[in-house]
Amino acid sequence: MNKLSIILPSTAIALGSLFLYLGFESGANGYVTLSIDGAFLLLAGLVTLFAPKARTAEVDSLASLSKEVDGVEELIPQILKGEITARFTHDGKIVLKETSKTDTTDINANLKTIELLSPNLRGMLTKDNIRDNMNHQTGEPEYPLTKKYTRHLIDVGALENVRVEVNHSKLKIELTKPVTGNPPLSEYNEPKEAIPIILSYRMLATLISIVSADIHSDTLPINIRRDQDTITISLTKVET
């Protein structure tokens, strides 16, 4: 629980009570609109503070699914644009190769590992990862984790659909109609500007981790681009 989730509902409860009081105190000819708004603010504040948290795990906010890691917000855009080489491992970690120390030849010397997934999501990953992800009736591969995770995104209206396409060593993740920030995605003209904001970097990185876990393989991001209202993330599989 961060500071904002205390400040917002307390402000709402304080304002709501004040408005309700003003409405009631002024009597029958009083501030009816204000008191209705007060009742609503009070309700909203109480719901935010006291709503059972357990139930919200089903449709939780995106933030709680990926961990707060310092410095990640600046790092991930660079990873996605291919400026930093990073490997998304099949067990949900991001392994960085620090490019600043180029003189070293030891590949394992400068590795940095980021664990992005929340315990909640990690639990989901370890539970489902052992399963065979093949649909035996159709022979098509299925991605249960990706399906589960993107359902959250679709539920909260962050995007409309996610499609994963595996082709030998190439991997493509397509996001249909992702909700993007300010300026909206559709206003970008150049593909390289296709940087989703609301559909945050953290969330994109989480999605890549999940897909990597689903296909049981480490991945390297190559490219991210936008075409009309889809975002396509291209990756290569790295056999472990």
Partner: peptide
Amino acid sequence: NRLIKLAYWIATIPTFAAL
């Protein structure tokens, strides 16, 4: 749907209208 910040931003609309 736990979009709390957005919910509060939208709540400012009726609040200002009521004031």
